[in-house]
Design a protein around this nucleic acid. Structure first.
Lengths: 334, 334
DNA sequence: TTGAAAGCGTTACCAG
DNA sequence: CTGGTAACGCTTTCAA
């Protein structure tokens, strides 16, 4: 199956390669007679002509593709399908291809193809911590427009506004009249080894703290892997209830923690939505347990939009650095 | 920042472009003096030379990239991050780039770039139903190696072995001594409009049926969106319990349904793992509720391996069609 | 309104 | 062991 080139379309139409290129490339196609244009279009369709991106990008000096860098370790670079699709849609809209590449944690020696070669015009890096130094240097050496996703840097970065997320979840419980509101996270060593954790762990907690402070209430904060045990959750919940004169609220770091807490409540005979109220932050509303959980839903579409806007502006006027942007989601009441 | 080409490396070393290409391209690099090789390697590194994939692929006639086609509608093409990463790893291993592209449901007119141009050597299509005709034709016209993921076709396709998954989940409950085992799925119109649903809905159920038949037991099957209500689940569970002389087991279509059922059980005062036993099929073990749920975990790595093996063999000897492959996961007891 | 020709960066073939 | 040269498919400039 030989591929069909401009030359063949030219031969079939009796026109020159240059003419066919002009018409099919669209650059100056309107300067030709309608008759000629139709002739070319028909022949191209009949022969099954498809432009070679390689040749085109060699000529233009741009690859018209953007590389998305991910860690092979899933939790280091959360990339929900929705975000991936949104990024692709946006890029396609501006005529770019999306190239996905992973960076191996274990084998720092093997640089991704996309960094070792000249294969992308720009980079989207979704790698929230501990990017290998080599890779960092390689990205830097490219001097190509780069936008960081889901991590906190002063510039060239787009991330969820987890401070607001934590605040919104808490304020939601406050407006519902709860005065005792506790915060739960199952992370290891959150306080003792802060650097190990994703910024969202710190920010959501800080948002909760801020909201409680503003309301003049005392924060009740617990964290630790022991809360992966339902029994621990039950004990803790029991304590919180004992110290509260009315229905308490609970803000959880994420959906998984919140579902765990919901289970603990049910085992204790407490019905979320009636006896207690649960709120959390996640990619999508937490509906699986079938009990009301208020969720602050991350705005993936907004993240993608902001990231691509940043990238486009860097591709355009090559601005050196742009301020970081925090994208806030919205609350879906449970 | 002008990009550094072979010419510049050649100029810097005083060698010819051809020589530098041979050494850097690796094709026949071992035929040169160590001294020369070092000279070239050093200069290339110092200047920051990076090969242009465009030029290379124009020369070779191959793009060295594989396109993954997804639907913009998430449920039409499940692509868990793990599968994506596994595919990328495998492709990188054989020197290919992964190009991700989406097919818009709403606007059938706009063909993805990757299909309209000559941009990929092969295609991975993860689009389980209702691929637009135009797209199907375009893929066909490419005559490029294509492997379908997560759908059932007679040839050139890799999908989870959901028949076995349903059977394994059921047999697990059987070996645990349960004799009353019920099956639940929240899908709309599963029986009346079978074509609307993903094959996994039918196959998991069929696997359950087969296991029950083999054990000489009567299948108890319920489905319908009303089971998204906890109260419906509770009523149903109550019925099943009333008709059973010992602890019943439940097989659910997926994790979400199973978590719903777990909640219903807890509200009824039943403890999963003691009073009832839950089993399901999902991408990862269902641990969020903190109660034991046995999960048949999909083998994403296996899927990726099989798909890439198929693709590689088609890239190699251009075999026309290969038999479909069903990949079975493994049970993680709850 | 159309076409000729140069050149983008790379590699393969052959000659030295 | 090393280097010329041609060719890959396309776009663009300039000339007709």
């Amino acid at each position: 199956m030989k591929r069909v080139t401009l030359r063949e379309v030219a031969a079939a139409t009796g026109l020159s390669v240059a003419t066919v290129s002009h018409i099919l490339g669209g650059s100056r196609g309107d300067k030709f007679r309608q008759e000629t244009r139709d002739l070319v279009a028909t022949a191209a369709a009949r022969l099954g002509y498809r432009a070679s991106t390689a040749a085109r990008s060699m000529r233009s000096g741009r690859t018209s593709s953007v590389a998305l860098l991910l860690s092979t370790v899933q939790h280091r670079s959360q990339m929900p399908q929705e975000l991936l699709v949104q990024l692709e849609r946006g890029l396609a809209h501006s005529g770019h291809q999306l190239l996905v590449s992973t960076i191996s944690e274990s084998d720092e020696a093997d640089m991704p193809q996309v960094l070792a070669h000249w294969a992308a015009d720009a980079f989207l890096v979704n790698y929230n911590s501990q990017v290998p130094d080599q890779v960092l240097e390689a990205i830097d050496a490219h001097r190509a427009p780069t936008v960081w996703l889901n991590c906190k840097r002063a510039t060239d970065c787009v991330h969820p506004d987890d401070l607001s997320h934590g605040r919104i979840a808490t304020e939601h419980l406050l407006t519902r009249g709860h005065r005792t509101i506790a915060y739960l996270d199952c992370a290891h060593d959150l306080a003792t080894h802060p650097a190990l954790h994703h910024f969202s762990r710190h920010d959501r907690l800080a948002g909760y703290r801020a909201a409680m402070d503003a309301a003049g209430l005392t924060p009740i904060i617990h964290h630790g892997p022991e809360f992966n045990e339902t029994i621990t959750c039950m004990r803790w919940m029991h304590e919180v209830l004992a110290a509260s004169d009315r229905a308490p609220g609970f803000v959880c770091y994420g959906g998984a923690t919140c579902v765990r807490l919901a289970t603990a409540a049910l085992v204790l005979g407490l019905l979320p939505g009636r006896d207690i109220h649960l709120a959390t932050i996640d990619s999508a509303p937490i509906t699986t347990p079938g009990v009301p959980i208020s969720t602050v839903v991350l705005d993936h579409a907004g993240l993608a939009r902001a990231a691509l806007a940043m990238l486009t502006s860097k591709l355009g006027d090559a601005a050196w650095q742009l301020d970081a942007q925090a994208i806030c989601g919205h609350l879906v009441p449970g």
